[in-house]
Write a protein that binds this DNA or RNA. Sequence first.
DNA 1: CGGGAACAAAAAGTCAGACTTATATGTCAC
DNA 2: GTGACATATAAGTCTGACTTTTTGTTCCCG
Lengths: 233, 233
Amino acid sequence: MSTTGRGLHGRVLDILGPEITAGEYPPGSVLRTDELAQRFDVSRSVMREVVRVLESMRLVESRRRVGVTVLPTCEWNVYDPQVIRWRLAGADRPRQLRSLTVLRSAVEPVAAGLAARNATAEQCAELTERALGMVAHSRGHQLEGYLVHDMAFHRVILTASGNEMFARLGDVVAEVLSGRTHHDVMFEDPDPAAVTLHVQLAEAVRERDAVRAEELTRQITVGALQELDILAP
Amino acid sequence: MSTTGRGLHGRVLDILGPEITAGEYPPGSVLRTDELAQRFDVSRSVMREVVRVLESMRLVESRRRVGVTVLPTCEWNVYDPQVIRWRLAGADRPRQLRSLTVLRSAVEPVAAGLAARNATAEQCAELTERALGMVAHSRGHQLEGYLVHDMAFHRVILTASGNEMFARLGDVVAEVLSGRTHHDVMFEDPDPAAVTLHVQLAEAVRERDAVRAEELTRQITVGALQELDILAP
DNA sequence: CGGGAACAAAAAGTCAGACTTATATGTCAC
DNA sequence: GTGACATATAAGTCTGACTTTTTGTTCCCG
């Protein structure tokens, strides 16, 4: 699951990153490279590489004669996939999930509208296929199978939009959907209305009906938001 | 302007990063750490830190016995502010500007709707102030002054939304607006209709009219998109 | 002639230690 | 109290030796 794992430096990052994003060190806290190197039992070279990466994520700032200062949340590169993963795995997971779902509700409808204009025949086909897959797994405790198709469906929509900024949110949406199934309470079977909306959306894209695609996606994301409100009002 | 500048490692990054994002090395190209260190006349330690940062941006991937492989564009962390800046400064600036403007058109209306619900009294006041500032600088070659208020206006909207993902796009929007004034052709004075829309938007937020705020912002962003279409059809 | 196992080379990864540089802070004179 | 100066500190840099992983080749055997 963890993308980083490769190398000693990645292992340290996978411990220190989550600690920082979890807020274990309040903003302004100062860490010393030497101490960290000692704590993780790695050389200063490795520790320096870790600090550089954390710095590029704007989680910390390294200054001479001061040390490695933890930056306030508002500075963090919250779109960094790594940061998103760390935060979703941490304590403020609910807040994070809500932020991301709101982002979804803004982006996906527009993306779907563009997809209706730009999707290739292959993309239309996969969309239909995935929607049917969702239908097939919508009853009788097949949540895992349903999730696979749901994630793929939304990824295709975002990719087919033709906008690379949208496309890059595929991973984020996948994380959100996955989290809903695995971590949060999910009813035995998915909402039948939502399944229908997906089928209709695939249809709208295939028929190049941008307005309808946008509206349908808006309904899907509104549903996702309402689901959150029920869980954590 | 460059955030990185600090340290020897930052200077190398400021050269190599733009080169990669400009597509000077096609995806799959292999760079060797030693050669790069030689080229930039820095030690391998410094070069390794640079590679680590590029790796965390998913611009490259470092593998043993192979070298540092340049990744295809679809892998890049295109939301990384650094990457955005590098790309905006490079050759595919127009494409990048369009992607970001489309993103704006998706996000800002929703953000404005939320801002109408969540904005504090201070934020409402600054919004009005900035709108008036835009009016004051809307005639007679005061593009710089206009830009300052325009950027601040949109940043307040995004921040006031209360969603950190939206708030973090303030820099992106600022870059887009700034680019329009500085690099691209901009008519002598801003479109009077756009100025009016901003004044009305400040009003709508102040009056907690979320629907109207959303609709007005939609008109603003549609205008921005049309402007792009005129420039690069 | 084909396939697989052993081997060798190449490049990144790691470490240790010495040295440099910037800078926050304390000290002292005025 | 204020300013200049000295000092200590922690990051920054460099070098060179060593380790580990992986790829590609070679060579043996079926």
